[in-house]
Simulated assay, not measured.
Amino acid sequence: MRLSNILPAAVVAALTLPAMIMANPSPAASIIDARELPDIELRSLHELFERQAVNTTGLIGLLTSLTQSLAGIEQLLSPTGISSINEVVTDLATLLKAPTTDQTKSLLGTVSDLLGGPEVSQLIKGLPAILSSVSGLLTPALVTNVTDILAGAHDLLTPTFVSQTTGLINDVAPVWFPFFRPRGKCS
């Protein structure tokens, strides 16, 4: 049985047990007989139970979330979790050593220079004209046709078909190429 199942019930028992003992302090009596209690004690006991019931529902929710968090920590501290943490720390140590950090800074500087350069800004300025000239080509019918062609090619180009076609081309190539010699050269 899991700790998350036992813990809330144990808390409820721990919270209600003192009220039961206070209501009937005699060690010989194991069950509280409400008929023997005066009205004032009975009302006090009833109010105590109501307060504890209200308090335990919030406490049970808190303890349930705590046990779920502990389960996450338990998973983190498992052998695979510790191994993963070790790998991350080792890789970070390697990544953060002097030559790697300098190389990363240099790479980021180069990328920043390239993206901020005049060529990229000209390309960005020219994008509206490029998109407007291509927009006539990109119709729903074209997209449907291209999708159909690609689906047909996918169905046709099986490994067996490719292998057979390659073999056929290799068989025909020696016969076909002698007929096509460059002009001006006759042997």
Rank of each mutant, 00 (worst) to 15 (best):
A34K: 10
E41V: 10
T101Q: 14
I130H: 14
S30H: 09
N24A: 06
L76M: 15
S132T: 13
L123G: 13
A141N: 02
L114W: 03
T110I: 05
L131A: 02
A93Q: 15
N24W: 01
T90R: 11
S135G: 03
V172L: 05
A93G: 13
L115H: 12
I149D: 09
S4K: 11
A13S: 14
T101A: 13
R51F: 14
L66S: 06
L66F: 12
A34S: 04
V134R: 12
S135A: 05
L3Q: 04
G126T: 03
A10S: 10
S65M: 07
R43E: 13
L131D: 03
N5V: 09
V134I: 06
R2T: 01
L42A: 15
L96G: 02
S84T: 15
D39N: 14
R2Q: 10
S163E: 03
N170D: 04
L92W: 09
D148R: 11
M20T: 05
K105F: 08
A129R: 05
D171W: 03
I85Y: 14
D148F: 07
S30Y: 10
E47D: 07
P118A: 06
L107I: 09
A98S: 10
D39I: 00
G184C: 12
E36F: 01
I6T: 05
A28Y: 08
L76S: 15
N55L: 12
Q164K: 12
I169L: 11
L156Q: 06
L70Q: 07
A23Y: 00
P128A: 08
P159G: 05
E36K: 04
L156A: 11
Q75C: 12
D33M: 01
A141K: 06
L114C: 02
L7T: 15
G72C: 13
L157K: 06
T57Y: 11
W176T: 11
I85E: 11
T94Y: 03
T158S: 12
T80Y: 03
S121M: 13
L59F: 12
P182H: 11
F179P: 00
L142G: 01
F179K: 14
E47R: 07
Q75W: 14
Q103L: 07
L62D: 04
S69K: 11
I60W: 00
G61H: 14
F49R: 04
F179R: 15
G72I: 15
T67E: 01
P118Y: 01
